[in-house]
Design a protein around this nucleic acid. Structure first.
Lengths: 329, 329
DNA sequence: AACGACAGGTTAAACGTTTAACCGTCCTGG
DNA sequence: CCAGGACGGTTAAACGTTTAACCTGTCGTT
């Protein structure tokens, strides 16, 4: 592993000169340039980024802290983040918090020790003290004092509401997500607001983000008493698909189902899930570009960006049946 | 951001002493110890890992290069790798090659510049020149001169073969994966070897790892002329599920299907996929522990480890029907 | 012809650590 | 009572860079 020193010696020139041609900081005589470059080629020089960072104080690495890589929501996000980070000349240090607040703060401090230039943070739960020595941009969660990029969850809720109405559903069941989660709460209330006055909420049951539905939900689903159930999540929607099958209901003929997230396999289940897609790639890309901007100018005004979501219609939600269930001719 | 210097001044002691109590390198008087620790607490000292690495030459970071994070196979693997890396006191720099050999070598050289202590590598395709300045452990792919951790694909093929036989299938269709991929080739030949003499291969069509089956496969599936089709992949298996539905065949009554990988949603499709599960977590964990061992002792003998896989039986593969299709009473 | 500007190069300091070498002091054992 | 550790601490060098300051010659202008 050749160092600046070795190149300098091989090219018969000083260390500083080599550094200058490497970085293009100062111009050099063509002859010298040639000698240096050839020496670099010959000896295989790669700059030591640690030394560089130490000297300049400007680290070329970013941190990423996420709750749980295993969540189908994340891989596409992480991929976008890593790709654009690298395009911008940064390297990405990834840390999985394992859905644990304590491990999350450990991760954040370790990143501080690593002198990252900034971090992209998807907080596991509630905000914690925020005096970190680097700029932070949060994704999908607002944290006071941080730049933020979020999907437009209220638009998502609205879209679902409109679609439900357009399909003619008038009695709707609701499997809503954790009330404490702002994004879930946003789409719930937006949905409620758009259907208010046009449709009736037959029932609402709060559920965790999982395909294993709680007993209460299962019982409801055995005789749903509504034509559509809108779910907190695609995972939950899959649970509903199963429960419906077990109860002998046909989706979407007897019961329509709408999810949220558009996980990669939303098109693989039977029937394909109607759901709303978050712009994961754009979310990731914009997160790191705003982080980059903040690094360049720490004084710039707070930047909060919300990206539009899209309804993707598949087969799990259909127009309401012309005849009530059981009375079919 | 307090440095050693600041702590030293605040505690009225030399830099070296602070360094020593931080690292426990040398013992200090209780009084001094207390003063240093309290200063650290007060000023919030965090060691600069770049400086540390520069001085000691021992980097505390590992690299990870993977073909495509978006592949459902990877998240669990990456999570395990990151977790155990951190347990061992390392930080993980993740790079997605985007299934592109060129970006892959870029990633590898960037990691060299970063002076990582070692790299976990899942090669995108074929091996390339291997004179990297750090130790490498490959996952799921053998590369000459590298430590390796792989899943036992021949066992996987054997397991599938035995299961097929046990279910009584005697005519089998094969949707085999890319022949160039050693793992796919391994399980194919192992499967073939175990069923040889007991069952007949009705047909074999090579397909890419995707749910969008090529026309040839679709045609075959319209009238499969066999009781079981074994697929290169869970993705492929899902494609078969669809094609079967479109052709009016019922799985598993009319046709059994077996996949490979046990992707997270293998249990969500209808019917749940019978498939074989790779020990992703163990693969990841062992990859970094062997990397760790190699870092500690560069001279240790090459380590190649193959981990057992398990057959997971769900509903997509059933005992062969007692009556040939169409002749059911 | 004198001068300044400039281009091309070097020297040395600095970034924040670790660590070898060194230096008192105090204790212990012969 | 003295030699010699052990102990607790300091000084300074080194890791591989970047960069300010400096030096030296060349060239274009007056």
């Amino acid at each position: 592993m050749a160092r600046l020193k070795d190149i300098a010696r091989a090219a018969g020139v000083s260390i500083a000169t080599v550094s200058n041609v490497v970085n293009g900081t100062k111009t050099a005589t063509p002859a010298v340039q040639r000698r240096v470059l050839s020496a670099i080629e010959r000896l295989g020089y790669l700059p030591d980024l640690h030394a560089r960072t130490l000297r300049t104080g400007a680290s070329r690495s970013l941190g990423l802290v996420i709750p749980d890589l295993t969540n189908p929501y994340f891989p596409a996000l992480v991929q976008a983040i890593e790709t654009t980070a690298r395009e911008l000349g940064f390297v990405l240090i990834v840390m999985d918090a394992g859905n644990d607040g304590e491990r999350e703060t450990e991760a954040l401090t370790l990143l501080a020790s690593y002198r990252v230039a900034g971090v992209v943070w998807v907080p596991v739960e509630h905000e914690r003290s925020l005096d970190w020595p680097y700029p932070i941009v949060t994704v999908d969660r607002m944290v006071p004092g941080c730049d933020t990029v979020v999907a437009d969850h209220v638009q998502g809720g609205t879209l679902i509401g409109r679609h439900a109405l357009a399909l003619g559903h008038r009695r709707i069941g609701l499997l809503s997500g954790p009330r404490a989660l702002p994004s879930a709460a946003d789409r719930r209330s937006a949905f409620l607001a758009t259907v208010a006055g046009h449709a009736e909420i037959a029932w609402e049951i709060p559920v965790p983000f999982s395909s294993d539905l709680p007993r209460a939900a299962l019982q409801r689903l055995a005789d749903p008493d509504c034509s559509l159930v809108v779910c907190a999540n695609d995972a939950v929607a899959v649970g509903v698909l199963r429960a419906a099958r077990d109860a002998g209901l046909r989706v979407p003929d007897d019961l329509s189902v709408i999810g949220f997230d558009d996980v990669p396999w939303a098109d693989f289940v039977e029937p394909g899930l109607t759901t709303v897609r978050q712009p994961l790639a754009a979310l990731g890309r914009n997160a790191v570009t705003t982080l980059h901007a903040r690094i360049a100018d720490p004084e710039r005004p707070l930047h909060r960006e919300t990206l539009p979501v899209t309804l993707v219609e598949r087969r799990s939600a259909a127009p309401v049946a012309p005849y009530p269930r059981g009375d079919r001719p």
